[in-house]
Write a protein that binds this DNA or RNA. Structure first.
Lengths: 336, 336
DNA sequence: TTGTAAGCGTTATCAG
DNA sequence: CTGATAACGCTTACAA
């Protein structure tokens, strides 16, 4: 099966390549008669459209890139599903790269996207990304949407959630449940997102006349194991703590393990709230109360925005902040 | 910044386009002097290689596709990370699609891959995929590796785990713990994977002189709720059962709930084993003993094999089966 | 070692 | 409504 070209189809149908191209793309006026002939020819020849040639000719491709740092994190997996769905609606192909926080890998991926004349990209940039990266990207003026992790550069569109409000909601809930000794576990010290979440927590404590104990605020990596370690230390050192707000659900899951090992019953002895609302949050026993950021929705929204940019939407850069909601399950106990 | 071409670089460096192309690809003999000049020109002009043009000319692209049915499933996310890593090592771009078990979506993705002259693909096909799909794929002779879900067609490479061995290990463990009344819960009746897992279970029973009770073998959907329902019925109808092997961890989690409702203590009154080793398996109380498959490794292996096929490796189709291991936690109690 | 030039398969412009 | 034809930017014989 030596591959057929537009010219072969044209010959077979007795028309020109221009006509075939127009039929394929529903452009221009083509009589129903010739359209039928062309379609028939395509069918009998088993013709496969060559998107590469079209992309070359158009100087732009129908490919977009998604850069993540950890596809293994359920939150990002969920977001990816949302984006993928949206991309498919628009007949766009999705390139995926997993930087694992490596700046060179990220750099290389973006360069590849440029080499492929990608129509745009959705980025959740690695933490150590140098400002120059964004400068260069800007100059290329290819649509780029930042997600989840905001960038100190108002030139880029951003889709994310309101971290501050999220932890405010969570902290208020814990206080309403009667807790006065609330810890904050997780996140990387240098993370801007963490700063916001921490802000929602501390400000709510202060608003309610509660003291802030720096010792009750600990960082840890985004993993179950890290959460477990951190919590084990924390709760041993500070038995007064009766509730914890976790930077992420995965951390909260680790904290649950640690508490169990300490013979503390989550939902009765200690209240726990996570952030992200990953699937696992509803599966564990007791269910994890958590701040839901609609990961899938972030993906869909970013996809929609990117598509509109690719269509030429040149409104000023937007920051779309999806409101978080508190999903209440059993991990904080139940109020009367 | 109107984009530069190879010709621009050539002009700037005072050489021909052929020379520039060779420098770019490290082909042919180029004197160090001209190579320097070319590289300098590339640098000063800010030239970006046009991979699309190259792909058109080569009639083949450096793009490969990954089709999954659910990227949201931690198992597949992990596998994706492994594949992505491997692809990057070989400078291949990864297209991702999430079929969500939709045959049309899957079909469309594969067609897109063909239109993009993809170099190959890794597929975990939707469950309802018609045989014709594979027939057509075969005729295109583009390298395609099947993962996780085997296909009734020896023409394709396959990378997956040894389901049979997995349940053998699990069943042996239960027998070694003294169980003689072992049920099998979960999976879809038509699933080939289930057939294999069931085979490991039944053959091990027979090997050990134990009878097979068809009534103790039940299907259910891949969800906690389904597992709970199935188990509730099963254990009420057959109180003699002292152990259950579950098709998946998620099912096992549901079974745990059902047992709890029946006031049966997992790990003491009833032993339970799952399959997959998802995160939750380590979180529940007691921890779920389960068969673990190295998801990331499956991704890496599939990537390596695909790459070798793209390089022209034309050995007969392979079936690479990665061995599962039994992860022992508390759900079967502890021996001596 | 390097240059010339003919494609790769599509799209768009301009005639007819 | 349809046809002829020149790009798009790179690769690769074949020449020099």
């Amino acid at each position: 099966m030596t591959s057929m070209t537009l010219a072969d189809v044209a010959a077979h149908a007795g028309v020109s390549t221009a006509t075939v191209s127009m039929v394929l793309r529903n452009r221009g006026r083509i009589s129903t008669a010739t359209r039928q002939r062309v379609l028939a020819a395509i069918d009998t020849l088993g013709y496969v459209y060559n998107q590469t040639a079209a992309n070359l000719r158009n100087r732009r491709s129908n490919q977009i890139g998604l850069l993540l740092h950890d596809i293994t994190n359920p939150f990002y997996a969920e977001m990816t599903a949302g984006l993928s769905q949206e991309m498919e609606r628009h007949d766009l192909m999705l390139f995926l790269a997993n930087s694992e926080e490596s700046v060179p890998r990220q750099q290389k991926f973006v360069e590849s996207l440029l080499q492929h004349s990608a129509g745009g990209m959705v980025l959740c940039a690695a933490r150590q990304t140098p400002p120059l990266f964004f400068e260069v990207l800007k100059r290329r003026n290819i649509p780029a949407i930042m997600v989840v992790r905001p960038v100190n550069d108002a030139c880029f569109d951003f889709v994310g959630t309101d971290n501050f409000l999220g932890t405010q909601l969570a902290t208020r809930h814990l206080i309403a449940m009667g807790h006065r000794h609330i810890a904050f576990i997780g996140g990387a010290a240098a993370s801007a997102t963490r700063a916001q979440r921490l802000g929602g927590y501390t400000s709510t404590l202060l608003e309610n006349g509660l003291a802030i104990h720096p010792d009750w605020i600990v960082c840890c990596d985004a993993g179950q194991g890290a959460g477990r370690e951190a919590a084990a230390q924390l709760f041993r050192a500070h038995p007064a703590i009766t509730a914890a707000l976790c930077y992420q659900d995965v951390v909260a899951l680790g904290v649950m393990q640690a508490l169990r090992a300490l013979n503390l019953h989550v939902g009765r002895d200690v209240a726990l709230i996570g952030f992200d609302d990953i699937i696992e949050a509803s599966l564990v026993e007791p269910g994890l109360t958590t701040v839901s950021v609609a990961a899938r929705e972030i993906g869909r929204t970013a996809g929609g925005l990117l598509f509109s940019r690719m269509q030429g939407n040149d409104e000023p850069p937007k920051r779309i902040i999806l409101p978080p909601t508190l999903v209440i399950r059993g991990s904080c106990g139940f109020s009367g």
